[in-house]
């Protein structure tokens, strides 16, 4: 009984936390971008403009829930839900601290890869169902981008799996007790980070949205809370990728003992979230064919090479 209660608390805790972090990140990103861009950002509503997100949420909830008459209604409604659901589901395997994780799955990492592949459907279906040429172009780009980046996203993580000998996230963290995987798996880290950026389609990989080209790409036709879901999904994605980077390469909850493990985990995650935002503030957007050839011609061979070398070292050692 107490174990069931414990899991219920963890599950609700994680969902609530993530659903709070996502809007919090919106505020954080806007303030941080503003700081880097010599302006103020939202600073009027509440202390430090913290209530801005709340105001935006209220606005977005009370907006007319418009579905264009030419859209494929069912799919149109389904698409934004997929992105949020898959991102939230992925958090199930993230170990926040010893014993605090929703599910200690043996195939944790594979579960995440599966969920992120499913997440791609939301963008593709959303663009397709909108029945708009800009959305269509956006979702075509998204399909191409995610398809090609998923391949070596998985491959880049295999080095970590080989070193640990397990897909279980807890085991992976525990294996980093003495040495973080960032050292033996630096190439894997770089590739995973780039692929993660592409998965969340953030600048510089925001070509499915590409504001100056495709207006808003796949979510051009969305408004109200459905648009909000895509938005929240994007921030959930950033948090997810950051927390996975921490778990897989930066020792998860491990850290000097003057802070509790869960704080270490969130602190590290926070640093990567900020890095994502900094990247957005500084880089331009490549063309999508450049992005694809970069992926196939450079990152894929590199991740294979990484795998080969890791294997060789393990065998010889």
């Amino acid at each position: 009984m107490s174990e069931t209660l414990y899991y219920i608390i963890v599950v609700f805790g994680v969902v609530t936390l993530m659903m709070t972090i996502a809007p919090g990140l919106i505020w954080f990103e806007r303030r941080l971008l503003a700081l880097w861009q010599d302006r103020y950002g939202p600073n009027r509503v509440g202390p430090f403009g913290l209530m801005q997100v709340l105001a935006d949420m209220i606005k977005i909830f009370f907006k007319e829930d418009w579905i264009p008459p030419f859209a494929d209604k069912k799919v149109f409604v389904l698409a934004p839900a997929i992105v949020v659901v898959t991102a939230l589901m992925s958090f199930a395997i993230v170990p926040f601290a010893p014993g605090i994780s929703v599910s200690n799955l043996n195939i944790g990492l594979l579960f995440f890869l599966g969920m992120s592949s499913l997440g791609a459907y939301s963008v593709v279906l959303g663009g397709w169902a909108s029945n708009n040429k800009y959305s269509l172009l956006g979702s075509l780009r998204a399909a191409a981008q995610m398809l090609s980046y998923e391949v070596f996203m998985g491959l880049s993580l295999m080095g970590v799996v080989m070193l640990t000998g397990s897909f279980n996230m807890n085991d992976i963290v525990l294996a980093q007790k003495n040495r973080w995987f960032i050292i033996p798996q630096f190439i894997g880290f770089v590739i995973f980070m780039i692929a993660g950026l592409a998965e969340t389609h953030r600048l510089p990989f925001d070509i499915p949205e590409a504001e100056s080209e495709l207006i808003a790409g796949y979510h051009s036709e969305y408004s109200g809370m459905k648009f909000g879901m895509f938005f929240v999904g994007e921030y959930l994605g950033i948090t997810l990728i950051s927390s996975l980077i921490v778990t897989l390469f930066f020792g998860g909850w491990f850290g000097p003992s003057f802070l509790p493990p869960v704080v270490w985990f969130f602190l590290k995650t926070f640093i990567f979230v900020s890095l994502f935002i900094l990247l957005r503030a500084s880089l331009p957007r490549p063309r999508y064919d450049q992005l694809l050839s970069y992926g196939w011609k450079l990152l894929l061979p590199l991740s294979l090479l990484n795998l080969l070398i890791t294997g060789a070292i393990i065998l010889s050692g």
Partner: peptide
């Protein structure tokens, strides 16, 4: 720069 997707230069 913004057309090419760079967000910040336009502010500077």
């Amino acid at each position: 720069a913004q057309d090419i997707g760079q967000l910040s230069p336009v502010f500077y």
